[in-house]
Each structure stands twice: as structure tokens, then as C-alpha cells.
Design a protein around this nucleic acid. Sequence first.
DNA 1: TGTCAGTGTTCAATATATACGAACGCCCCA
DNA 2: TGGGGCGTTCGTATATATTGAACACTGACA
Lengths: 272, 272
Amino acid sequence: MPTDDTKSDPRTLTTVLNAIDIIRALMHLNGAGVTELANHLGESKSTTYTYLKSLEKGGLVRKDDDRYRLSYDMLIFGEYVRNQSLLYTIGKSEVDNLAAETGQYAHLVVEESGRGHNLYKSKGEQAVGDGYQMAKFQQRDYLHITASGKAILAYLPRERVEMIIDRYGLPARTEQTITCKDRLFEELADIREQGFSHNNEEEIEGFQAIGAPIRSRDGTVLGSLSVSGPKSMFGEDSECQRIIDLVTKVANVIEVNVNMHRRSSEIVKDET
Amino acid sequence: MPTDDTKSDPRTLTTVLNAIDIIRALMHLNGAGVTELANHLGESKSTTYTYLKSLEKGGLVRKDDDRYRLSYDMLIFGEYVRNQSLLYTIGKSEVDNLAAETGQYAHLVVEESGRGHNLYKSKGEQAVGDGYQMAKFQQRDYLHITASGKAILAYLPRERVEMIIDRYGLPARTEQTITCKDRLFEELADIREQGFSHNNEEEIEGFQAIGAPIRSRDGTVLGSLSVSGPKSMFGEDSECQRIIDLVTKVANVIEVNVNMHRRSSEIVKDET
DNA sequence: TGTCAGTGTTCAATATATACGAACGCCCCA
DNA sequence: TGGGGCGTTCGTATATATTGAACACTGACA
């Protein structure tokens, strides 16, 4: 396998990066045969085969009839990571309540490497669509295009925001997406003043959202909460205000509980 | 790094298996520093460091302050695998209903490499404990110790059951766990006759469960459904019978819907 | 304030693992 | 019945991983 530029540092294990490429490709292709995968990655069939067999031996990949697929061990890792997050263990039921009270989708989001990861999503009774609609909300997304993302950006140090923009740019998803850096910084200042963020069809046409940050006692942003639904939901001022109040209230409840939990853990730690 | 026996096949990529070992270790140690991890795995610090940096570059691991941890990308893979499963996408809401109606825990399980994987769990109002209690139910478990596992074993070909027993044995979790092969096969025959399985404190002291298989039209077992709770729940015959009826009914609903969906997908496929 | 024991990180030399094409057997469809 | 697709195996050419020793840094403790 030729050494390519993204893997060029002689002090990284190319074999590990290749294996990860295969894992990601298996996800994007929804499972694949050896030949298909080899062509997709531009590698030889025999090499690809060796990787698949090794990943299978390691338990990350299974061969299901005619295709290699990611195994259920991936689910174990995923659940583990989720349960490691205080925001999730403490916030889950609150997010469910929020979805129930608003009838819409509620999302709990954390930042990692400059992008927003959906830690948990809950669907209210009146939320449009089911499996299909739910899939519209990516598991991971750019921070500038969602209400939850902007709520996080607003409380990150400016230099980190700059770095994130440098890395990913400000790609547009719809006509409304904020693609101008100055515009974004203005909005982040507004968010800090108001205490909540608003997504005005910047991610999906016809969809709006309200987000609020969840911060630790030292001011660091831990994540954010959001409610999203069809723009008609946010049209009437009274209803829109109700959602804003609910989102900020619930975000605050989670924030207080997380900080309480952290404080008590610290006390236990100090005593040992 | 010395070649050890489990990795001895010259045609498997040791680097890939080593990387997977590190991923698993990071989970079991709840994140780790370089030295701690190197000691745990019996490898040199520098080697371990190279792996961690490569995994970080690949996005599977993040360095969080002072420890290396699994990244949120793992959550992406996990959610992807879950959503690939028809049993989950179709069964989720049914499992929620079942948990609501019984007030207990409901689990949706699939088999992979001879073990049961929890595809989805739902917690009813009266279910004892919360985060802690929930954690009692592993993400993956041996098939002979749970109601859902036994429901699956009952409908696997006998030779596969034999292979699974040869591979993992019949380890005991409690006094009640079935550890005798003949005893197990008797019970599997009973399950086939009754159409449901019963876990009598074989996994956790004080906990019982009822399970039922979900099968495809050709008879293959796709997974299983179960409800579990404190033994007092299953003491009264009337209540126990109610749970049996509910579990078998809901398993059947999921079964019918999954098979309907599969049939219509096949038709679409044939038409192309 | 200085020392110590711990950490993560770098490097050059050594040891060993990975990559590939060509060939095989297999199955399905024409 | 043959051809084209697939997954799989193998020998060899070549690129890769492994290691201990050394360094910089941090925080604890005296």
C-alpha cells in the first residue's frame, strides 16, 4: 500500500489508519464485499481482504452472508461512550420531558474536534416524520448550522472558534446558513446576551430550532440542548416564547444537576 | 511487540489486532494514560504511545485533559449499527410500549458470535433502580443465562448451539444458572413447546424474566424480546401470565412487521 | 524553593510485519 | 457449458512497527 499524504508522518501507524478507513467505508457503504471495498478505497483486493479478516478476528467486523459489516461490538463501544457522559446520564430523562412538553424533537449535544455530536435525541408526539425525519438530524454536524451548535460556539473561547472555522470553513446547508465569519461572531454575541440560540432554517428548509448552552461552574461549556420543529411552530410569538422558556429552563436544570454531581465527586476524590 | 499465540496467524495484521486491544482496554479502564495503558497491556510505553496517537489521528480516540478516551465517533458507529437493524427500527416503539404496559424493563436482543447483544432497552415506570440497576443488564451477555438468550438458543440449529457451548462453556452467574448441557437442551425443547422462555434468577439474584423469539418466515431466529423485573412480579400467577401474554404478543407484532418489511423490500429488489 | 518521582513525548537502530499480483476454486447466469 | 464475477490463498518484494534510553514537564513534598 503506497504511503499517501494524509498518513505521511512516519510516526503514525499506517496500518491503524488504514483499518479505520475501512471501518468508516463499511459504514458509508452499508457493508461491502471485498472487491467493492477494495475499489472504493483504491487498494488491492488481497490487502483489503487481509484487513477485513483482521478486523473480523478482532471482533469489529462480521461477515453476514455475503457482505462484511460493522459488528454489534460497535454498539457496545457507542453505549459505553454515551454512558460515560454525565450530560447524558443526568440529562436523558429531562430531554425526554422536554420532547414530551413541546411535542417536538429535543437534542442533547456535545462538542468534539470542532463538531457537534448528538448525545441523545428524543421525539415528541407531534414531531413530523419518524425514522426518516429523525435521520435528517445527523449524528455529528458542523456547529454553525444548528441551534445547539451555535449555543456551544457562543461560549467557547474566541480563539477556539477561529480554529474551528479555519478547519472546516462555514459550509452552507440551506440559503439561510450563516457563511460569513463576522455575521457569525455577531450572532454569537447576541446569543450570549439572550442566553439562547435560534436556528432559522439554517440546517433544513422549513425547520427552526431553539438552543441553550449547558455550562460548568467555571464557565466552560459542557454541551447544549435544543428543540426543533417545523417553522410553523415558531411562527406565533407566544408559542415561540414558550419553547424558549422551556429550553432555557431545562438546560438550567441539567446544568445544576451536572454541577452538583461534579462537586460531590470532587469531594469524594479529595477525601481519598 | 512479541507475536503472541492469539495473533499467530502470519496473515492477520497484528497492528490491527493490537489497536483493537487498545480500544477495548480504554473502555475497560475508563480511559487511561500512556503509562497505565502500557502496563495494563504489557507493552512498552513508546509503542503504546504510537498506537494512541494513531488512533487519535484516525478519530477513534481523543485526549481529554490527562487521559486518552474513546471518542464520540464510537457513538456514531454504534448508532449506525443499531439503525441498520430492522429489529430496532421497527421494534423500538413496541419495546417502549411493552415497558410502559408492564412497568418493567423490556429488552430487544440479537445474537452475534454466540452471544446476545442488547439492541435496545426500555425502562418502565415501576422498574427498580435507575442508572445503576440498568447497568446490571450487560450490553452483551451469554445466551444461556438470560430469558432472551434462551429464546434465541431454542430456535438456533442444534449444531450451532453445540458450537456456542463448546466455545464459551456454560458459566454460572448465580446459583440458578443452567450449567448442565443436557438440562439446557431439555429447557430449550420446553421453550419451543411453550413459545416463550423463563429466566428464574439465573442471571441476577432476585430477578426473573420472560422472553420470546422473533423469527423470520423461513424459521431463522432474528432476535428476541424480554421483560424482566423483581421476582415478586412473577410470583402471582395472574400477573405472570399477563406478562407472558404481553411479551409473546409484542414479539409477534414485531415479527409480523419485520417480515412484511422484508417481503416488500424483496419485491422492490426483484423489480429492479 | 529545590528535589524527586511521576508523567508524556522523541528518536535512531533493529527486528519484523504488511502489500501486491497472479492464480485458484467457486457459484450464478446466460 | 462456458464466462465473468466473486472471495480466498500464496510467495515474494518492500515498507513498516518496536524498543529502550533520554528529555522535558508537572505537581507533591520537604
